[in-house]
Design a protein around this nucleic acid. Structure first.
Length: 276
DNA sequence: TTCCAGGACCGGG
DNA sequence: CCCGGTCATGGA
């Protein structure tokens, strides 16, 4: 990341490559970002952020150098060269098309517990309703950060609840799963921070100790928060797309990049470009 | 009214 | 191992 300026309480990055706010924040990996007149607002790691892009320059409004370096730089995965990834996978014709289309997607490094809960809630659900459930959960059990903005609740808080307590959140059959996840995380039975350094298969097995966490929810947690860039979440869209596009499996050039390749295929197929 | 949504669990074969 | 039914909720 070159050309970072700290001025008037804002952080500016000039000439940003492979970073589109809408593609990254609204592609289904995160559920708490909202756009208003080109400005995206959200909360992560207990901090609020307003961010926009003007003339190839990204502005982080009201953000200290400390928060940028400690939180946002890693959150937006700025240390990874997505241009090189796209370059490496373009030898496959289909991956070239998909990555050209989703060129601005970056993998977010989100809070593990929030990501785990979000994708538990996502099962057999649609995105608008997922967002609504998470919003109500944060408003009721998170900490107030600013007017109308709340942090994602921590595991200790949620571990003390019953399914009945969560009835007004209207998450349905997933409530018991959220409580089980919270209890296992709060007690240390599942130690999320340990999972960064474990190999992907072992980390997935650990996550699947939680009720309501199968391979897909586990892989989303691994990819979108635990830095397992090789995780490849298989939802209904990906299954359909891979069946049609890669009946004999992913091409070799995808090795090492399966996580972002999954996002390119997901974004591409959901855009309607595949006709499947 | 019925169907479906970034799935997982459960039972039975 | 694989299959179908089931699980809450709400918008289309």
């Amino acid at each position: 990341m070159n050309n970072i300026t700290y001025k008037n309480g804002n952080v500016y990055i000039d000439d940003v490559k492979n970073f589109d706010l809408a593609m990254t924040l609204d592609c289904g990996q995160a559920f708490r970002w909202k756009e208003d007149n080109g400005v995206w607002s959200g909360v992560a790691f207990g901090k609020r952020l307003k961010i926009s892009k003007e003339n190839e320059s990204i502005v982080f409004f009201d953000t200290s150098k400390e928060d940028f370096e400690n939180i946002w730089s890693d959150y937006f995965d700025f240390s990874r060269d997505y241009g090189k990834i796209i370059d490496d996978i373009k030898s496959d014709e289909i991956l070239k098309k998909a990555s050209d289309f989703g060129y601005g997607i970056r993998i977010l490094n989100q809070e593990p517990f929030e990501t785990l809960c979000s994708f538990i809630i996502s099962q057999n659900n649609n995105i608008p309703r997922i967002k609504g459930i998470i919003d109500r959960l944060c408003k009721k059990y998170g900490q107030k950060i600013d007017d109308g903005l709340y942090s994602f609740p921590d595991a200790e808080t949620l571990s003390k609840l019953t399914a009945n307590d969560l009835s007004d959140i209207r998450m349905g059959f997933r409530a018991k799963y959220i409580i089980d996840a919270s209890q296992k995380v709060a007690s240390g039975e599942v130690n999320l921070s340990d999972l960064f350094s474990l190999d992907t298969d072992t980390a997935r097995t650990e996550l699947m100790k939680i009720k309501g966490v199968g391979p897909k929810v586990a892989d989303c947690t691994l990819l979108f928060s635990l830095k397992h860039f090789d995780a490849f979440p298989k939802d209904v869209w990906i299954k359909r797309a891979v069946e049609v596009l890669f009946p004999q499996g992913l091409p070799e050039c995808a090795n090492g990049y399966k996580g972002i390749v999954q996002q390119y295929i997901f974004y591409y197929s959901r855009s309607g470009n595949l006709n499947i």
